[in-house]
């Protein structure tokens, strides 16, 4: 069995007692080698979760183990984190920024990768003169050239035009294919990530509500339509009644009666929207997404 890239146990974070919990009671596991979509509405706790995994924040409670370690000084060299605002030094040129990347990561720096990704950028331009999309490209060049075991990208594609998005996503996927890098990408637009990701974490209201292989998470649900009647023993996530017709998203417990219901597989997007509209639906983690320490302790 492969190890975990991230394993969180009872992870919680608050930025001050008065401001409530940004993240609370999060336990999940992300197996190594996956490309994970971290989705959720604005303010759900996605950025907090990424900053905790990057070792930039100290959790208020619980632990997060990254690439097998909980020591933040040990984690940071092996993780690349690109924050939402792409923090770079505005006074440095592109060339200076890449030089600094090499000096700061002497052991692992991949100059070819850095040059390849940064190729369209003018070398002598100061960072402050770059467009948002160009800054994203430079930040991704630094992150990839570091050759990390885990890449944490907060809204990486938000500033990019469709062509640059496709190209940079292709580069990320190529890196992942070649080096088995684990990648976590956050977005509140799922379609941006759907084809690229094979793992899913839905964070909402500071909690993890869905976690696991995208295929398995989808397969655990069914969209049923039929005459209004009781859906027990299945778990109903969301249901809607129009006249005599009932439409519901359920988590089947055993086979669904195909004579009584028209059964279809929901799309990932339908699934996420249904969960976001139904905050009381129970969370679902597939077996690979269960934190092992929690299992052992239980």
């Amino acid at each position: 069995m492969t190890g975990a890239a991230i394993e969180a146990n009872g992870l919680g974070m608050t930025y001050g007692r008065k401001r409530g919990w940004a993240l609370r009671d999060c336990s999940f596991r992300l197996p190594a080698g996956r490309i994970c979509a971290l989705v959720g509405p604005n303010g759900a706790g996605k950025s907090t979760l990424l900053a905790l995994a990057a070792g930039l924040l100290r959790p208020t409670e619980g632990t997060v183990r990254v690439l097998g370690s909980t020591d933040r000084a040990e984690i940071r060299p092996r993780v690349a984190y690109v924050a939402q605002d792409k923090p770079l030094y505005p006074q440095l040129t592109v060339a200076d920024t890449l030089w600094a990347g090499r000096e700061l990561n002497p052991a692992t720096w991949d100059a070819d990768a850095a040059d390849r990704i940064a190729a369209p950028l003018p070398r002598d331009a100061k960072v402050r003169t770059l467009s948002g999309g160009q800054r994203t490209r430079l930040a991704l060049a630094l992150a990839l050239a570091k050759r990390p075991g885990l890449m944490l990208l907060d809204e990486p594609m938000a500033d990019l035009d469709p062509l640059a998005r496709h190209q940079l996503m292709g580069l990320l996927m190529a890196e992942a294919a070649e080096h088995s890098t684990t990648i976590v990408m956050s977005s509140h637009i799922l379609t941006e990530l759907e084809g690229a990701c094979d793992y899913l974490l839905l964070v909402d209201g500071g909690r993890v509500r869905l976690g696991g292989e995208s295929e398995d998470v989808v397969a655990a649900h069914a969209l049923v339509t039929g005459q209004v009647r009781d859906l027990a023993p299945h778990t109903v996530i969301e249901s809607r009644t129009t006249g005599r017709q009932l439409t519901a998203l359920i988590r089947p417990d055993g086979p669904v009666d195909a004579a009584a219901w028209d059964v279809a597989e929901p799309s990932l997007e339908e699934l996420l929207l249904a969960h976001l509209r139904s905050p009381d639906a129970p969370p679902l983690l597939t077996p690979s997404a269960h934190a092992r320490e929690a299992v052992a302790a239980a």
Partner: peptide, 17 residues
């Protein structure tokens, strides 16, 4: 094409290839 070539051109997940 290798998985790398396919995903670089299509931006899909390597495991899919």
């Amino acid at each position: 094409p290798t998985a790398r070539e396919v995903v670089e051109a299509t931006a899909i997940n390597p495991n899919t290839v």
